[in-house]
Amino acid sequence: MLIPGWLLQHEVTVEAWVSEGPYGPKYSAPVVVRCFLEEKTRMVRNPAGEEVTSSSTFYALPTETCPAKSRVTLPSGRVTTVIASYRHDAGTLPAPAHREVQLQ
């Protein structure tokens, strides 16, 4: 079961991080992602296991690609960076599969 479409009320623009270049990070072309955006500050762990502050989290279809370090533009116009992205799959349980993306 996937996250219901009616929950995906917001749109963010994601530029997936590709690599570090000689002049800074390289990103893929921007993609608009339908999601549920929660602007709430909380402590999370980054991929290195360090505690960092997340200002927002969005939930999208599990097929979306949002690797750490990707650049995200929120509906407000604020540009932020992905701390971590997790795919949640409940298997046979009656819970929706989705992707959770934690933002700086």
Score class of each variant (00 low, 15 high):
Val72Ala: 04
Met1Asp: 03
Tyr59Asp: 03
Gly21Arg: 00
Gly21Asp: 03
Thr81Gly: 00
Ala90Leu: 11
Gly49Glu: 08
Pro30Trp: 03
Thr57Met: 13
Tyr59Met: 07
Val18Asn: 15
Leu2Gly: 10
Glu11Tyr: 06
Lys26Arg: 13
Leu7Gln: 10
Gln9Pro: 03
Leu93Pro: 12
Ala84Gly: 08
Arg71Glu: 00
Gln104Lys: 12
His88Val: 11
Phe58Cys: 05
Gln102Glu: 14
Pro4Val: 02
Thr53Lys: 09
Phe58Ala: 05
Ala97Arg: 02
Lys69Ala: 08
Arg87Gln: 11
His88Pro: 02
Tyr59Leu: 10
Pro25Arg: 01
Gly24Asp: 07
Ile3Trp: 02
His10Cys: 07
Ser70Cys: 06
Asn46Met: 03
Gln102Ile: 06
Thr13Pro: 03
Gly24Ser: 01
Arg78Leu: 13
Ser28Cys: 05
Cys66Lys: 08
Arg78His: 09
Glu51Phe: 08
Val79Met: 00
Met1Val: 11
Leu7Trp: 10
Ser19Trp: 10
Val44Met: 05
Asp89Lys: 06
Pro96Ile: 06
Pro75Ile: 04
Leu74Asp: 02
Met43Trp: 15
Thr63Gln: 14
Pro67Met: 01
Val101Lys: 04
Ile83Lys: 00
Lys69Glu: 09
Thr57Glu: 08
Ser54Glu: 05
Val44Gly: 07
Lys69Pro: 08
Val31Asn: 09
Leu2Asp: 11
